[in-house]
Structure formats: C-alpha cells, structure tokens
Computed example of a mutant assay.
Amino acid sequence: MADEQDVRALDYLYEAGLLKRYRRTGWVVAGVAAPESIADHSHRAAIVAAVVAELEGADPQRSAFLALFHDTQESRLTDIPYIGKRYLKAASNAEVTADQTAGMPEGLARLIGGTESEYEARESAEAVCARDADKLECLLQAVEYREQGTDTQAWIDTSFAALKTSSAQRLAKLALERTPLAWMHEARDAKSPK
C-alpha cells in the first residue's frame, strides 16, 4: 500500500498539471484566439525572474523558483479576470497553498508554503524580482499579442506601471521599442562562425 504522504505529493503534481490546461483569462477577454496557459506564463516568468534577479544582483535561482510557483493556487481558483476580482472574494493564496499541501511530507509542505509566503510578502530581493517577472512576462506577452493584431495596450500599461526594479523597467522600455522577432532576424542575418 502506498504511503499517504507520497499520495499527497503525487496528487499535487497532477494538480499542477491543470495549469497546462487553464488559459489565462485576461487574454480570452482581449480576444486572443488561442491564449497561453497559466503554465506557459509561469515558465517564462521563471526565466524572466532569473534574468531580472541577475541584473539586480539578487539570487537568480531563488527568484526563478519563486516565480515558477507563483500561480500554483490557480489550479484551484483558475485565473480570475481582473474585473471579476471586483465581485469575487477568493481564498487567499496562503489558504489555498495550505489546502494543497495538507498531508504531504512535512518538509515538502514547508518548502511549497514557504515559497508562497516569501513571494506574497515581497520583502526579499528575490521575491521583488519574481513579482516583477510576473508583470514583465505579462507585458512581453501583451506585446506579442499586439503584434498579432489584438489590442492589448491596457495590459501593457498596467504591467509596466507595476514594475519596481530598474532592470525590469529597462527591459520593459526596450520591449516596447523592439519587435518580438528582431532577435531572430538578427540571428539569421549574422555571419555564421566557421
């Protein structure tokens, strides 16, 4: 018979899989035909967090870890659109995380709960970088969707306004000046090393 704590750990992994299915509802509202999933967003947010943290002199691995877990509660809450939050009283991320980790091995529950707590408190440099990564990733995605013909200016504006670190602000300004595929054209046109 399986150990109950291992069952709870496995269940959490299956639950996290829902994040691959759930779409980011803001993009649905914007009219994006095939919007990114919550997992898509969290994946690039973790990469963005590592970049921002390195530029800010914080721990990139810790920041990426925080960003990777930042939306895991949405496996139970889904991605409530911004306007919907006005009318709904959702449980706090701490409450959801506590329910998600109940019955897990103590160390694992502490790891996941501590990650949520650190991210939400935004007191460590890594948490600030992870939060900026969440917003910067949204801005990048909005720019990409804008390039595809969807009006995403409101997402660009609110994401930009939420950035706290100078590194994230610099990258956001650059993202607004540079097309998302400029890197590809430059790489294609660069001379190949012999």
Score class of each variant (00 low, 15 high):
Arg8Phe: 03
Tyr12Trp: 13
Tyr14Phe: 10
Glu15Thr: 10
Lys20Asp: 05
Arg24Cys: 03
Gly26Gln: 14
Trp27Leu: 15
Ala30Leu: 08
Ala33Val: 12
Asp40Cys: 04
His41Asn: 03
Ala45Gly: 14
Ala46Thr: 05
Ile47Val: 15
Ala50Lys: 05
Ala50Glu: 05
Glu56Trp: 10
Glu56Asn: 14
Pro60Gly: 12
Phe69Leu: 14
Phe69Ala: 10
Asp71Arg: 00
Pro81Asp: 15
Tyr82Gly: 11
Leu88Asp: 12
Ala94Glu: 14
Val96Met: 06
Ala98Gln: 13
Gln100Thr: 04
Ala102Tyr: 09
Gly103His: 07
Gly103Glu: 10
Gly107Ser: 07
Leu108Ile: 04
Arg110Ile: 08
Leu111Asn: 00
Glu118Ala: 03
Ala125Pro: 10
Val128Arg: 04
Cys129Tyr: 03
Cys129Phe: 04
Ala133Cys: 01
Asp134Glu: 11
Glu137Pro: 01
Gln141Ser: 14
Glu144Phe: 02
Arg146Glu: 14
Gln148Val: 06
Asp151Glu: 14
Gln153Asp: 03
Ala154Tyr: 14
Ile156Gln: 09
Ser159Ala: 15
Ala161Asp: 04
Ala161Glu: 09
Ala161Ser: 13
Lys164Trp: 07
Thr165Asp: 04
Leu171Tyr: 08
Ala175Val: 03
Leu176Val: 05
Arg178Cys: 01
Ala182Gln: 10
Trp183Pro: 02
Ala190Ile: 07
Lys191Thr: 10
Lys191Trp: 07
Lys191Asn: 07
